Amino acid sequence: MRVHGTDHAGLRKGAAARFRLPNIGFVFQSGNLLPALSASDQLRLAGRLAGNRDVNPRALLGSVGMSHRADHRPGQLSGSERQRVGIARALVNDPSLLLVDEPTAALDRKRGHEVVGLLADRAHSAGVAVVMVTHDRDVLEHCDRTLEMIDGRLSPVEGSLP
């Protein structure tokens, strides 16, 4: 995989980790939020781990509609809210690539559309490439390009961009 002209596969483990932190954001299916930390603290910690101490948690949480829940811990948030905090955390370092795993798995249809719509808006407004893996065909309308894996091979879905 090439990101910013760098072949990620050719990097050693430590170099790959240093490259990923500022360039690639990850949104996990389950959110992977730390239970003891508030939404704001999740973002501060992600920034510090990447050497970015200028993180503005309220602004980032506001960009995903979560500033009103900044002081809440994961156990106090709904599935959709946890997913949006996870998206904000993935955006802490302004990555150029977001890798998203099953963002709608724990959400109802309405919330799933909200979360994927948010990712699409962010992709378009900030020029972020989003690669999303999903089984949820209901949210494909938010995607610019859609590929389907059949028998281990990727092929374009009819009607999506080439």
Rank of each mutant, 00 (worst) to 15 (best):
R69K: 14
M66Q: 06
V116L: 13
S96L: 09
D71F: 04
H68K: 00
R84L: 04
G79A: 06
A16M: 13
H124P: 01
L98G: 04
L61M: 02
A105T: 01
A16F: 03
S96A: 15
L45T: 06
A59Y: 09
R44A: 05
S96M: 06
R69A: 09
L49P: 10
P95N: 10
L91R: 05
T6Y: 12
A120C: 12
S78T: 13
D71A: 07
P74L: 11
S38K: 06
F19E: 11
R73W: 06
A15R: 14
V27P: 00
G14M: 15
A90P: 08
L107D: 06
N52G: 00
P22G: 15
S30D: 14
G10L: 13
G79W: 05
D41F: 00
R109W: 08
S78W: 02
F19G: 07
G14K: 15
H72K: 10
P35E: 14
V85F: 06
Q29E: 09
G31K: 05
D54V: 01
L107F: 01
V85D: 07
L21Y: 11
V116D: 03
H8F: 14
G65L: 00
R44V: 11
A15C: 07
S63V: 08
R48W: 02
N52T: 09
R84P: 07
R12A: 15
K13Q: 15
L21E: 12
P22Q: 11
R109C: 02
D101Q: 01
G47C: 04
R109Y: 11
G75S: 09
S40C: 07
S96T: 12
G65N: 09
